[in-house]
């Protein structure tokens, strides 16, 4: 695997933070703010821990709060992940 995709992110987001009522997680959320999707800082910290465990990329806590949308997270990770 050499790219972190929206499908990876949705799977981790779902497992880390559940899904808010009235929200459907699909590729259309890529530019939605996490807060608009119902996720708080704990959910994003939980997701970043799962990303590190699975993909080996550590996201410092101060960066977690700067990544506001799925696209920003995906781009951040793909900049840092070495192709396998």
């Amino acid at each position: 695997m050499d790219q972190f995709t929206i499908d990876h992110l949705i799977r981790l987001l779902r497992s880390a933070g559940g899904v808010a009522d009235g929200v459907e997680l699909n590729a259309g959320i890529v530019d939605e703010a996490y807060t608009d999707l119902g996720y708080d800082s704990l959910a994003l910290l939980e997701m970043s821990a799962k990303i590190q465990q699975e993909f080996g990329v550590a996201i410092p806590d101060e960066d977690v709060t700067e990544l506001k949308t799925p696209r920003q997270t995906i781009d951040y990770l793909n900049d840092r992940m070495s192709p396998i």
């Binding site: 497992s15 880390a16 933070g17 559940g18 899904v19 808010a20 009522d21 119902g38 996720y39 704990l42 959910a43």
Partner: peptide, 8 residues
């Protein structure tokens, strides 16, 4: 229980 709360 709302899905966000179930996991928390």
């Amino acid at each position: 229980v709302p899905g966000r709360i179930v996991v928390q």
